[in-house]
Design a protein around this nucleic acid. Sequence first.
DNA 1: TATTGTTATACTCTATAACTATA
DNA 2: TATAGTTATAGAGTATAACAATA
Lengths: 165, 165
Amino acid sequence: MALVARSREPDSRPDDVDLDVLENTLSFYVRVLDMAVSRDLDRRLRDLEVARGKGKITALFLIDSHPGIRPSVLADLTRKDRSAMGRILDGFEAHGLITRRISTEDNRAQELFITPKGAALAAKVRTIVVDQSESFFNRIIPPKEQAVLIDILKRAYRRLREVGQ
Amino acid sequence: MALVARSREPDSRPDDVDLDVLENTLSFYVRVLDMAVSRDLDRRLRDLEVARGKGKITALFLIDSHPGIRPSVLADLTRKDRSAMGRILDGFEAHGLITRRISTEDNRAQELFITPKGAALAAKVRTIVVDQSESFFNRIIPPKEQAVLIDILKRAYRRLREVGQ
DNA sequence: TATTGTTATACTCTATAACTATA
DNA sequence: TATAGTTATAGAGTATAACAATA
């Protein structure tokens, strides 16, 4: 595949593209990596009607492991808008995966609980997600670098929440 | 903000959430980070009608710096589907940012060229993108770790393209 | 006044499959 | 047969602003 149709060097390949064009921005590499891993995961979740879509998974896990957790906390942890999270929860509820109760302590707040059906799905999805992430990254990043990477990213995540972004 | 509405420890905070729930998957942290940096960038690009949307920017830069580059190469470099890239190019063309020519060497292929208007926009956007990525990551990751991070991610990017994902 | 969650709206991004035209 | 690009379709995800109820 030639980079440019009328190249002076007809054999030039995409590898020849000066990636400094991308300005060495971290944002580019993060974005591309996310796209790739998300696409791969979506394929592995294709069968599971409800769980499909990268955005919902974490919320389901958290409700499963933290009974009574609130929508606003889920939004915070997943770095989403409250309204976006609300839509996800609507879907879960409609599919009988969770229940919502109004808090007795604060009538504005909700408590979220997993149903047996939801717990079963969460367990199944968890296995897939863990396996997928592992095997995906094993294909492109050496184990030692993976350890460094997750260490850096975990701290970045904490900072993200501290800073409110 | 209490984690659980009826917690035994009413002061428990989101920090208390056991993040191992997320199974320590790299995919989670990559996804959240991408969401955060993309959202931040979108805000900075809000005014620029055409450039808005994280997905298009790199393509515009590459056409600017590699006259005659092909759509399929852009799709490869940005890890997108050809049809998705086609739609982006349609938008660019409709806004007078690029031109398409059929290759004289291969009538199936196209050559893409930036217009003066496109070049001007690319220059403006480039400044914003570079600045945004820098200042965003400076807020959440120490400089030394950033260097390690981009090093790892660049190699991961190369592997991604090698493996075809 | 601030917070929790909802509703309505609109937009971006993406993939899939079927198609054409060329090679 | 394989490749470059298009079209049509469908779906996921997201943010914004305005709102109601509550604190």
